[in-house]
Amino acid sequence: MSNTVTTAVPAAQEPMKFKKPSQVKEIWRRFRKNKGSMVGLILLAFIVLVLIFADFIVPYEDGIVQNLALKNQAPSAEHWFGLDSYGRDLFSRVIHGGRTSLGVAVLATISSCIVGSALGAIAGYFGGKVDMIIMRGLDIFMSVPDILFTMAVVVAMGTTFANLIFALTLAYFTNYVRLVRSQILSLSEVEYVEAARAGGSGSARIIISHILPNAMGVIIINTTLNVAKIILYESTLGFLGLGMPPPAPEWGLIISEAREFMRTAPHILLFPALAIVLTACSVNLVGDGLRDAMDPHLKS
């Protein structure tokens, strides 16, 4: 019986080398697999690039200078998106308006995320009276309808870029407080936090280096999803005439102005609406992909 099995003997084994599998690289590898999210990401990158280089693409003045003789002109080679009811170049208005809309949305998201996460972390980690005070304060904020609340703030303080961000932050930080608090409540019971405490770590270190990094996935995903919501919300404010003061362009404002000419010049409504939909969609797609890519249970 000669069933000798010949196995390939590895030649002169090199000492194994281990490379750091960076978290970011891992997430990117998994994110790339999701086609929808990649489309969203490319679209979003394109939108952001256009907004950043808006001044090189089309001058801001084109969107401000009125030319009533040409009002409501349909799209042409000269004016890609046509002209609005005051004869202003819609392409310029949509692109420059996007800077305000997206800028406000992103900054408001970041600030509400920071404020909300900090409050949520404090409430969740310390519990007891601190938790009670923060959460009851939050209840007061949440008992007023968002839109009413933001309108009140904007009306009282005036419509400037900073005030818009402030108002939107006040409307949206409550989400993060609850989210982060619940994450912290469940995470501060886990064994590795317990183990870190047994190793002599203090509260601040435990929150910063153990709890928040583990809650980060959920926070980041919520943030990307919120950007889309705030873009829509900010447009709503603009639509209600509580956005940036005219003639400064803004997606919501353009739509609100286009309302009267919906039948005669639908392009005025179409392009800003399309811009909102595309941006919100792409941000949502990216958020979805991030959620899947960052979930450790889906690691493959």
Binding site: E191, Y192, A196, A198, H210
Partner: peptide, 23 residues
Amino acid sequence: RTYRGNKIAMVFQDPMTSLNPVM
């Protein structure tokens, strides 16, 4: 806190959950 981990250290029961997964 200066005693914990320094003079007195503790090993927990379950190795699967006692390490921080993202560090």
